[in-house]
Design a binder for these strands. Structure first.
Lengths: 346, 346
DNA sequence: CTGAAAGCGCTAACAG
DNA sequence: CTGTTAGCGCTTTCAG
């Protein structure tokens, strides 16, 4: 309950000096600073964030918009953002919009605009130009992770190129009957991600002169269990089976491996499976995949934002940071070959 | 950038009337309200949360403290809390403290005290009396999920009783050689959860006159992959094997099933496995478990808090809600028998 | 280096 | 029902 006034009284200083001393500003004598600090400590003084934000215009708070917290990719990004922010003394306001359009709307049109956030990080969210403009209009820098965001900075991986790479890995091993397990079209609130990865797959197949069979293009909801169900249907089709599957996420690759086991198929002997992500569970299954360090992407996004904010503050820019020209960074990835892929059965 | 003043001017009303009109208060003529609303809309007015919080004392913001966002239980709780809060127009400030003591400290001693939260929900966190007092001292209601929190309300399941139930399920099937896979002792930032579940297991064994073999009491980090590694060690011990395993979480139960497969053990024919949680993936593995609806627990916690806050507001209580006597609620659960448990091999 | 004073933008009595 | 008047608790010129 102690306010800065109480601290000032107890320290025998003015409110202004205490404020400067406590927020580590210059132009305060060592003695005054000590005096202020002790008084504050003795009173258990904790500054009111609302008051200081109101007065200074800075919030020390970053918003994070996610479509889900259950899928590995998103919780990993969240973890990276969270750790970076916490260490910098920033709060993280989480908007888990899920798949409900209503929630998405209200977050975008109400929550985010309440001038309470210094910046926002949007993960795998397709924003309309209007939505982006609205955000930019309130002078908040935005960074997008996982896809392009016109006018905002983004961090992403080369989804189409990497899908090609994954597919090529299979082709080089000698596979010709390759299936692709993609994300449900309904999940295209995401940056059209499923579509992009699928395009990469198709391009690679085409380049190799291989057919893309419609019945081997299946989809699931990005979860292990969803992919398991879809893969069972794929592998259970009475007809010819593929000898390899490229799944658009590790979770779906794992679901595929589990389904294969049900049919007595040995991985990779009878069926090769490659995923994409770098999920920790991949090791257990010997999953060949493309690592993308989602946690690192989240941390990087947060760091970039913090730098921008600091720069804005240093420039005396009234707390509202100036977004330095929107940049589009590609995050590094690596192909990790384990034991779920091999040459096709004779 | 438009402030309430601009809206007032444009509407030809006083600031006060606009404030009342826009925040849906009574005592405003329909005409004035309409006038205010149109003016606000035309100017794209969005109220400053800091200003209104400072003036009203209410933040519309709840803090959630979690030890992790990757484990199923926590992300499920998060999801429940998040949805409930969003729908009520509240912000969710997330503190993912992880296992770093430093972070835990700073969150507890800095972040949470900044008077920016109306309430806090702590999941599976053991708070010292001091910490609880500190939080209560700033007049913020707290609710704990997943364990006891002296002085605060809690929502939890009967961990010890349910562990007993799970163990008894195995015993009733005829098992006598039962192993227990518990959480790493290091994870006892949790409400001593591993210990409590283990105690339930031991009690059930004792009641049945069965021996608890130390070498069959193993631990892991609550993840599938961690449990997989531990279970491999358990099942790979040259000596006699258990015929059943009770894992303290579904993720660990699944890791166990995967390990069993590696050794050519059929579940449940050669090894019965029971888990605890209600993880969606359990279905894929036919996992027998105890469902606990973590999402629902999170939603309930949020709802309780919102009610308390509303009550406080209604009571004209300066926004600082009065915690109505701390209650300790037990959340309902159910034993779900699937196909991972059966009578022991002959 | 320090203090006084002027707000940040809104809400909440209080009179009318 | 509406306008006026005080602040909420801090930061920040601006003098000194």
């Amino acid at each position: 309950m102690a306010g800065i006034k109480d601290v000032a009284d107890r320290a025998g200083l003015s409110i202004a000096t205490v404020s400067r001393a406590l927020s580590g500003k210059a132009n305060v004598s060592a003695k005054s600073r000590k005096l202020a600090k002790t008084a504050a400590a003795e009173l258990g003084f904790v500054p009111s964030y609302h008051a200081s934000s109101l007065a200074s215009g800075r919030n020390h708070n970053v918003g994070l918009v996610l479509p889900s917290v259950h899928r590995w990719y998103f919780s990993s990004v969240l973890e990276g953002v969270s750790a970076t922010l916490l260490d910098a003394g920033y709060d993280l306001t989480l908007y888990n919009v899920g798949d409900q359009a209503v929630r998405r709307e209200s977050v975008l049109n109400d929550f985010l605009l309440r001038k309470r956030l210094d910046a926002v990080i949007a993960v795998a969210l397709v924003l309309t130009d209007d939505e982006i403009q609205q955000l930019l209009a309130i002078h908040r820098p935005i960074v997008g992770i996982g896809g392009a965001l016109a006018g905002a900075s983004t961090i992403r991986i080369n989804d189409s190129g990497l899908s090609r790479m994954a597919t090529n890995h299979l082709i080089q091993l000698g596979h010709t009957r390759i299936a692709h397990l993609t994300g449900d079209p309904a999940l295209n609130q995401d940056f059209k991600l499923p579509g992009i990865r699928q395009a990469g797959f198709e391009a690679a197949m085409k380049d190799a002169g291989l057919p893309v069979r419609p019945e081997w293009q299946i989809s699931a909801d990005f979860t292990i269990q969803g992919a398991y169900a879809s893969a069972r249907r794929l592998l259970g089709m009475g007809t010819e089976r593929p000898t390899a599957v490229f799944a658009a996420s590790d979770e779906m690759a794992i679901g595929t491996i589990l389904a294969a086991r049900d049919f007595g198929l040995r991985v990779p002997h009878d069926l090769s499976v490659i995923g994409m992500d770098g999920h920790e569970l991949g090791e257990v299954f010997g999953l060949t995949t493309i690592n993308q360090d989602a946690r690192g992407q989240g941390a990087l996004a947060a760091r970039l934002l913090l730098e921008t904010l600091d720069a804005g503050a240093a420039a005396g820019n009234d707390g509202a940071a100036t977004p330095r020209g929107a940049t589009d960074r590609e995050y590094p990835t690596e192909l990790v070959i384990r034991t779920s892929t091999a040459v096709p059965p004779a």
